[in-house]
Computed example of a mutant assay.
Amino acid sequence: MSAFPHQIVDVDSATNRELLHLFHGERTGFVQVGRSRWLLPSKYRRMAGDFYNFRVRPDDTWVVTFPRSGTTLTQEMVWLLGNNLDYKTASEVRLNSRFPFIETRAVHGRFPMLIHDEVLKDLQDLNQDSSRRARVEQMSRPLTEELDQATSGRFIKTHLPLDVLPPDLLTAGCKVVYVARNPLDVVVSGYHHNRRFELVGYKGDFPKYWNCFKKDLVMFSPYWAHVTEAWGKRHSPNMLFLFYEDIVKDMRAAIRRVADFLGTQVTEEQVAALAAHLHIDTFRKNPAIEPNSQRLVGLVNQDAQDFVRKGKTGGWTEEFTPEIVVEAENWMKENLSKTDLRFPL
């Protein structure tokens, strides 16, 4: 096992108090990792080496994104293209079982990184009937054991930046699909999503969430380092870098690109059928894409919006005040000046 190469430090006490007040799903505090100062929950300190030393296989397929960048849509597309367009299994087996999210599952006997031990205990207490209890126990079951037992190609989702993932991820022969989305849409989607889930439990308003986002104080931040690190590796033969805006603008073209990257042959009829399956009006109603855990009592706010919201681009304009628009324009201009990455219009 290789030594984890990055320094992990606690967030300063004042900032930590502020974050714990806003994000009720974390009960202990937050850490910052490496030169980029990735913001992660305190439990990451114990699990950093497990993620970094995760054994990658040549037939793995990974989807890597900053949260709320079109991850779920991309997972479904990638899984179907990688599994002979098996819509029957896709309708019967939930996406998070077909394409597990490693941060929300136990690793090497440790409880999930994104689920604080106290929150997990609360879920266990609230979900005493057998079916719900089984779902809580599934989150506590080591994902590494499950994936080690998989005999065919594995499909894995993560929001962790490439910097802290296995160093051979892009050289071991597996396929990595990275999706980036305009950060102004990301922040609005993240605000609603993190109010929805008690695992994060955001209790503030949108202006406060925006302030945390631009200061790199939401989970998996900094946003710009996350995206530009992947952008710099986009020419790797084992990485496909996609923009969410391009996917929704021309779904059929995106399907062809992903199919070509995965080495999958598809007819135009199959492309059309998959595009229809992934259309937001259909996709939003698909029960197989919502995590099993959403049925648990105490995990999702009762007044929260759907797991898949609007799925459109440019929706940030509905949430930003005129003052935040000015801040955002300056923030975008400053950060884009440091990179040749440009988001599609």
Results as ranks from 00 to 15, higher is better:
His226Pro: 15
Glu146Trp: 05
Gly263Val: 04
Asp250Gly: 09
Thr104Asn: 15
Glu323Gln: 11
Leu160Gln: 06
Arg257Met: 00
Asn16Phe: 03
Glu329Gln: 03
Ala328Thr: 08
Lys215Arg: 12
Met332Arg: 06
Trp62Glu: 01
Phe51Pro: 03
Glu118Cys: 03
Val227Met: 11
Asp205Met: 04
Phe241Leu: 04
Asp129Ser: 09
Phe243Val: 03
Asp250Phe: 05
Lys312Gln: 14
Glu329Cys: 05
Ser2Arg: 04
Arg37Ile: 12
Asp303Gln: 15
Arg27Leu: 06
Phe243Ile: 04
Pro183Arg: 07
Ala254Asn: 03
Asn238Arg: 02
Pro58Phe: 00
Gln7Pro: 13
Trp231His: 11
Leu73Asn: 09
Phe283Leu: 10
Lys208Gly: 09
Val136Glu: 06
Trp38Asp: 14
Phe343Val: 08
His108Trp: 00
Asp86Leu: 04
Arg45Lys: 15
Trp224Tyr: 13
Leu217Lys: 13
His226Asn: 15
Thr267Trp: 12
Val200Asn: 14
Gly70Thr: 05
Thr317Trp: 10
Phe54Glu: 01
Phe51Val: 00
Lys43Gln: 13
Lys310Glu: 11
Phe213Trp: 03
Arg181Asn: 12
Leu240Met: 03
Gly49Arg: 00
Arg195Ala: 06
Ala150Cys: 01
Asp260Asn: 05
Phe343Gly: 05
Pro5Trp: 02
Phe30Glu: 14
Glu318Ala: 15
Phe54Trp: 02
Ile115Asp: 15
Glu245Gly: 07
Glu198Ile: 02
Gln302His: 15
Gly34Tyr: 13
Asn301Lys: 15
Met239Thr: 01
Ala230Val: 01
Pro41Lys: 02
Tyr44Val: 03
Leu345Cys: 13
Val33His: 15
Lys249Thr: 07
Glu334Lys: 10
Arg195Pro: 04
Lys214Pro: 05
Ala230Phe: 09
Lys338Thr: 13
Val300Gly: 15
Arg132Pro: 09
Arg94Gly: 11
Asp125Arg: 09
Arg252Glu: 11
Ala172Val: 00
Phe261Val: 01
Asn286Glu: 14
Asn83Gly: 12
Lys249Pro: 10
Ala253His: 06
Glu290Thr: 13
Ser221Pro: 13
Gln138Glu: 12
Leu240His: 03
Arg196Phe: 01
Phe241Asn: 05
Val325Cys: 14
Phe155Lys: 00
Gly263Asn: 07
Ala150Arg: 02
Asn127Gly: 07
Lys233Trp: 07
Gly25Tyr: 06
Thr89Glu: 14
Met139Gln: 07
Ser42Met: 13
Leu114Cys: 05
Leu126Arg: 10
Arg252Ser: 09
Asp122Met: 05
Leu199Val: 05
Phe54His: 01
Leu299Ser: 14
His6Pro: 10
Ser236Gln: 05
Leu336Thr: 05
Leu160His: 03
Lys88Asn: 12
Leu95Phe: 09
Pro58Ala: 00
Phe320His: 06
Arg68Glu: 10
Leu345Ser: 15
Asn127Tyr: 01
Pro5His: 07
Asp340Asn: 09
